[in-house]
Design a binder for these strands. Structure first.
Lengths: 152, 152
DNA sequence: AAATATCGGACCGTGCGGGTCCTGTTTCAG
DNA sequence: CTGAAACAGGACCCGCACGGTCCGATATTT
């Protein structure tokens, strides 16, 4: 439960990858470096560009560029960019459609305080925090199995 | 995003409903009073019983009984009971199956701090809080539209 | 012993996310 | 000036998990 979409996970990886170089990076390039199919990466990048987290440079020699440092990107922004606004239940926005039938609904899913709590919790964590907690040496692994074995 | 299952929403409603009387209540009775199909309520009750949030009384004159007051039930418990442990990504527990392919994964979804933050945020909110924040007069609304209009 | 109500499982349909592909447009390189 | 590279924005399909249903077994009360 509370599972967020795989795309969001990808988005974090993509953004971190995008932060390593200051130059623009193509989506195929990012895809190959993180081991995710290109079309999926392209879709993620597109969504991120739409939310203003990354900027796109069209044409040849184009690519994507990070607009803010990782420390200035809370995970809530990434989640909102990929999966839409943070709302645990459909009762909050689409309430009219679902809840009109059951006027008996006592709580009617008063999830607002819960949503706010999660929102604030997510605002307090930036991608830099997530990057920091990740194992640093895993960033470049030409031979995955060997490196993993060496790490253990 | 971050949508939790409808079952969890139901669980909250069921638990609140279960708190009104001290006597055991049958699942059909609860179902009819909150306007949710009986089999679904039964499934929710079953899950809640498995997590120890409610106790079941088998046999004739049986039913379900709340084991703790609402104030002692954090939403995290309800979510855990219905949807399983709180983990945003599949990377945390099922990591072996999914992530072995991409050893390149730099962050590998270092969502642990995020999970913890959400967990603690959810621990701080009890069902009593959600019940309290619900509009009180909404508990019995024969004519919803009128009441809503009056509220504005 | 019979009636009642939970328990525990299997079962299935549907919606949505995950993933792919194609076409158009823009820009740089030659 | 032309061609190639790369983003933009669709449409599209597949699979899975959730939501919902049903039935037999079990336990308890009358």
């Amino acid at each position: 439960m509370l599972r967020l979409s795989k795309l969001t996970d990808y988005a974090v990886v993509v953004l971190v990858r995008l932060s390593v170089g200051e130059a623009v990076q193509t989506s195929p390039g990012v895809a190959s470096s993180i081991g995710i199919p290109e079309p999926t990466v392209a879709k993620v990048l597109k969504a991120l560009a739409g939310s203003g987290l990354v900027a796109s440079q069209r044409g040849a020699r184009g690519g994507y560029r990070l607009m803010r440092p990782l420390a200035a990107i809370p995970v809530s922004d990434v989640i909102a960019a990929i999966d839409g606004p943070i709302a645990l239940t459909a009762c909050v926005d689409g309430a009219a459609t679902a809840c009109e039938t059951s006027s008996l609904c006592p709580v009617a899913g008063r999830w607002d305080p819960v949503n706010e709590a999660i929102q604030s919790a997510l605002d307090g964590i930036t991608l830099a925090d997530m990057q920091k907690s990740a194992i640093p040496r895993a960033f470049r692994l030409p031979h995955p199995t060997q490196s993993i074995a060496a790490a253990e």
